[in-house]
């Protein structure tokens, strides 16, 4: 019996990608609507400078949202994201103007993120400690490291590098696309795709020969890398390092991932959702700023929107179930 290749089979990869957009259309629409509103309020957005500025405010949030989402996909979570962002920022600010230069700094930042993430992963997974507690303790250790490296805001980022990343160029936007592309590439590897299986059905995945522990630890390492890179970008933006600059990102990363439809129990959600979630959060903050909301009102709105975004599907589902 010879197998017939059916129409569509040869384009399996792209069709799978298409399927993953389902269920996100609502989110995409909301993001588009907010973007349109923002562009209407602030026509300057539709220029190179406008796009550049906006992308620069968005990029760090996008990175930490991905860092959190990848862990949530495996059924974990990290409360150390903010501290790791700070660490990335201070390492960048102390190495880049030194002997090894910008390239050395990037290597140092990336390596520290990978190592610290992997260590958290090994402790949480190999020793079977709950992720929330391990990363809570890790947040103190990592935050302490950042304080050791740079006890008070300081250090320096070479001016040309700051201009390249956070000047009047859309480099940040390019970076978002680049990171998303690299993620696609990772998800196309067996280890990457295993994330979903390891998160939703670890026992079944283990029996099917998926290296569940390896996939999870790799996720922690990548999460650490994305967090320190976010720190690097922030350092480039501000031109110096600050050992506590990342604090707000822990909670914002969770919020963005959740807005993007990533579930807490593992295996549910997509990275494009998390990125869209971070975009939504970013645009909302910008829109509120332009509408003249005091900065603090943003907190109030943010809290309400997160609850609304999560509760709405629950409520609509309940109403639909009623005959």
């Amino acid at each position: 019996m010879s197998s017939m290749i059916r129409t569509g089979d040869d384009r399996l990869y792209w069709r799978v990608q298409g399927e993953r957009n389902r269920g996100l259309m609502g989110l995409f629409a909301v993001v588009a609507a907010f973007l349109a509103l923002y562009a209407y309020l602030f026509p300057g957005l539709l220029s190179v400078a406008g796009v550049s500025k906006f992308a620069q405010s968005w990029l760090p949030l996008a990175l930490v949202a991905m860092a959190q989402a990848i862990l949530m996909l495996t059924g974990g979570i990290s409360l150390a994201i903010g501290a790791t962002v700070s660490l990335g920022a201070v390492i960048a600010a102390t190495t880049m103007s030194g002997y090894f230069g910008v390239a050395g700094g990037i290597v140092a930042v990336s390596a520290s993120g990978l190592v610290i993430g992997a260590l958290c992963g090994v402790i949480a997974i190999r020793l079977r400690l709950p992720a929330i507690i391990v990363t809570l303790a890790a947040s103190f250790i990592i935050g302490g490291l950042a304080l050791l490296i740079l006890p008070r805001p300081g250090g320096a980022i070479p001016g040309w590098f700051s201009d390249l990343l956070a000047g009047n160029t859309p480099a940040a936007l390019v970076l978002v696309f680049l990171v998303a592309l690299l993620w696609k590439l990772y998800l196309a590897t067996p280890l990457g795709l295993s994330l979903y299986a390891a998160g939703e059905n670890p026992v079944g995945a283990y029996r099917a020969g998926v290296p569940v522990d390896a996939a999870r630890i790799a996720a922690y390492a990548i999460s650490g890398l994305l967090s320190t890179l976010a720190g690097l970008f922030i350092a480039a933006q501000t031109g110096s390092g600050d050992p506590v600059i990342g604090q707000a990102f822990t909670l914002n990363s969770i919020a963005a991932a959740v807005l993007g439809g990533v579930g807490f129990l593992g295996g549910r959600g997509t990275m494009r959702g998390a990125i869209a979630g971070s975009l939504l959060l970013s645009v909302m903050i910008n829109v509120m700023f332009f509408l003249g909301f005091p900065p603090v009102a943003q907190y109030v709105a943010q809290g309400l929107i997160i609850i609304g975004a999560v509760a709405l599907p629950q409520l609509t589902a309940r109403f639909r179930r009623r005959p």
């Binding site: 590897t189 795709l193 979903y196 939703e200 026992v203 079944g204 099917a208 020969g209 998926v210 295996g267």
Partner: peptide, 24 residues
């Protein structure tokens, strides 16, 4: 032992994916 967010093909191959240059 299936993963509901993955496609039929990705579930069938799980743990034994054919690879090319390290990618599925």
């Amino acid at each position: 032992s299936l993963t509901s967010d993955l496609s039929i093909a990705e579930n069938i191959g799980l743990g034994a994916y054919p690879r090319r240059f390290g990618l599925i």
